[in-house]
């Protein structure tokens, strides 16, 4: 069973729809036991980092995520919450990835909204598509700086981490569940880990 973590205002429905289309059963849950015993865990997210972190802390989920040993996928805000800190609300996050999340500089069009190109892809998330330069769907105002865990880069105003991976933790700044066929390949790569 795949657990989709429910907190605050994530787009859990969209993620579940995508898994269903791919033929995977999932459960949307905030129950820590269910999350711990799931085969895979997805931490989706839209919304604000501070409010989301508070929700994760109140529900006791913030404590268990770093202890999980099964594959975990953070999406969009989910990626940012797995980083060390976020300048959105000046908060400490879960600290899986050793990089900081910052806001795109002002004076440019923000949020970064639309389809943009993945580069320098590596690792299991991008199996079979490493050699392509696919476009995937982004919508975000904050970004994770490139770091040792970066497994894909995207350029918008500046280069940022489009995907991160460390041990059993995977994360995408883009929305694979909204990125058409290429997104489905990436999700499937995660689901078959």
């Amino acid at each position: 069973m795949i657990a989709i973590v429910q907190y605050n205002a994530g787009n859990t429905g969209s993620v579940q729809n995508a898994l269903t289309r791919l033929g995977y059963e999932s459960i949307i849950t905030d129950d820590t036991d269910t999350i711990c015993s799931a085969d895979k865990v997805i931490l989706p997210g839209v919304g604000q980092a501070r409010a989301a972190m508070q929700q994760l802390q109140q529900k006791g989920i913030a404590d268990i995520i770093p202890t999980l040993t099964q594959p975990v996928l953070g999406i969009c805000l989910g990626l940012q919450l797995l980083c060390k800190s976020s300048s959105e609300g000046r908060i400490n996050c879960l600290g899986i990835f050793d990089c900081a999340v910052k806001r795109f500089p002002t004076g440019q069009i923000v949020p970064h909204t639309g389809w943009n190109t993945l580069e320098e892809m590596k690792g299991l998330l991008f199996s079979s598509i490493e050699r392509l330069k696919p476009d995937v769907y982004f919508v975000h105002s904050y970004y994770a700086q490139p770091c040792s865990a970066t497994v894909a880069i995207c350029n918008y105003i500046l280069p940022f981490s489009a995907a991160l991976q460390k041990d059993n933790f995977y994360a995408t700044q883009f929305h694979p569940e909204k990125s058409s066929g290429i997104g489905e390949i990436i999700l499937k790569n995660f689901l078959t880990l």
Partner: peptide
């Protein structure tokens, strides 16, 4: 519609409150 498409989905028309918005997001609007 949300169950069938794999691209972003914007929904509008007659939304008057946060609750209206929440219901549509729950239904699959991005």
């Amino acid at each position: 519609i949300a169950r069938r498409i794999n691209i972003p989905f914007t929904v509008g028309g007659g939304i008057n409150s946060v609750e209206d918005a929440a219901n549509l997001i729950r239904a699959g609007a991005d």
